[in-house]
Write a protein that binds this DNA or RNA. Structure first.
Lengths: 290, 290
DNA sequence: CGATCGTTTGACGGTGCTCAATCACCGTGG
DNA sequence: CCACGGTGATTGAGCACCGTCAAACGATCG
């Protein structure tokens, strides 16, 4: 008995989640006009153009459902309309590596165009709705609607730029800095979506954040606590409020996280404060008088 | 004297390099047929088609030269023909964060399409040659040559997939695993380019690797040494030979780097060996009845 | 209300960042 | 030809940070 053992835990404490809920994906009979899709992707469009009324199918994805299954054939490209997704890659030992988070306007599934199989999965973090464009239609529509083509190019360009930002996120040495950068990054996205950049509602678990940042989820928790103690953040579960954006952004630039003193002089241009007891680095800096 | 103060060193030991050699970029009078560009991008083409003879301008970039300058207006998109590049983002304190390395066939500068300014720079790590396509031409040629359009789409898709791989690289907890993943990744690229996957010639410095992986460059050095001691690698400066690919790839999957025992049983499918003294994780594994 | 999962906090030990010194390798100029 | 910086790579020593293991608490849902 108990055949088929699945090892779920090499990346140690970072367990694979319950995992097996790849359901609740409704192809949804509804659809929306092309104009809405384009606006979502940041293109100003003129509704009067007849082609703008062309209708694009919508899918509904409920919390925890798998929109893109790893290993499945790549059939559709999606644009998030509402909701949040995490992109993941599952190792053979079951550890689930989070690669990115997606918000409305983001394109999902485009990576798979170059292969025929989906190499990265996507899971809804809340009840979400996505535009769904089949691979065949995509080719066709791009010729048919130059504006869509342009929008796609823009979106891809943005995603590439976003990948660079992710690399920056993860390249920080200190875990506090990583978290600070993540919060600032998320705040920026919320702001771009017309939501408050200060009062954030994180859709993802601590473990998801930890996975993305490459640190232990306990460390995420602790870093949050540190920021709260220092009066930079206010945290209640997944509700995060940024109290002192200036200090938070300063953290973003340093190697070491928040330090004891150094309130926040010189938000810009001044010597980056917040070094714990590191002074030599300033002497070592290339001083050149003006 | 010595005007213009530049703080160069917040990310501590990770100094900004000499930095100021943004020169030696020759617009090169020569050019090559479109067919070659497409083949470089992984598309099979038929030379007999007349449009395949269309000629695409070439630029020459010598070692250390800046192909894409951060902050400069985005005018061209490039495809690497020969050579290697690093993509970088320079913080205001002068610290140079490496975002990725590019080899022949890779697209550079596409991120900048969505903005008008280059937000990430690109520097040649060796004497290189790139195809150069102006933004205006790009739009035009995509309509003119559907094959180019397709190739671009493919290349972008691949770059997106590659960004996911980078995230995986950096998400490893242990620095040895990070380095192992980096080596395997680089080996794979070399292999895809028709070069030896075992004898690698790294084009980048230890510091560049360290920056990308988010660790100290001393740690990169130490990790290399560890691999040499264990007989997995043979390292002479930037010449790296992979002695035991199986062990190296195993490292790739673990949290902790090389372990003492566990030679290498069960390359695939079996329980991932190499856990230091972690047994509980097996019990915690999700046992699934069939 | 109990079960499960997510979050927080504590304690401990090891990894890796920091600082430093040394060596190898260049191209330059005496 | 060999001193001479200058840069990159390697190695060592010390200690702080964070990964690991544990336990307690809170939230959510049936």
């Amino acid at each position: 008995m108990t055949p088929d053992i699945r090892i779920a835990d090499t990346e140690s404490h970072r367990n694979a989640p319950p995992a097996t809920r790849r359901c609740a994906l409704t192809p949804m009979p509804s659809s929306r006009p092309l104009a809405e899709l384009l606006r979502l992707m940041g293109i100003d469009v003129d509704d009067s153009t007849p082609s703008m009324a062309f209708s694009v199918p919508l899918w509904q994805v409920s919390t925890g459902a798998t929109l893109l299954l790893e290993g499945a054939p790549a059939t559709h490209v999606h644009v998030v309309r509402t909701g949040t997704f995490k992109s993941i890659k599952t190792a053979e030992d079951g550890y689930e590596q989070v690669l990115s988070f997606s918000s409305p306007g983001d394109v999902l599934g485009f990576e798979a165009l170059c292969e025929d199989r989906q190499h990265t999965g996507a899971v809804a973090l809340e009840d979400s709705i996505v535009f769904a464009i089949s691979k065949r239609d995509l080719m066709l529509w791009r010729r048919l609607f130059p504006t869509l083509d342009h929008a796609l190019q823009l979106a891809l360009s943005r995603r590439l730029a976003g990948a660079g930002e992710m690399t920056e996120l993860m390249a920080a040495v200190s875990s506090e800095v990583r978290l600070a950068r993540f919060i600032v990054w998320w705040s920026g996205r919320m702001s771009a979506l017309g939501q408050s950049p200060r009062r954030l509602r994180l859709r993802m678990s601590r473990r998801d954040i930890a996975s993305l940042l490459g640190i232990a989820h306990e460390t995420v928790s602790r870093s949050f606590s540190t920021f709260v103690e220092c009066g930079v953040l206010s945290v209640a579960n997944r509700e995060v409020e940024i109290i002192d954006m200036a200090r938070l952004k300063m953290c973003t630039r340093n190697t070491r996280g928040l330090t004891d003193e150094t309130p926040y002089r010189a938000a810009v241009g001044g010597r980056p404060a917040g070094l714990r007891q590191r002074t030599r680095s300033l002497e070592a800096a290339s001083l050149t008088l003006n």
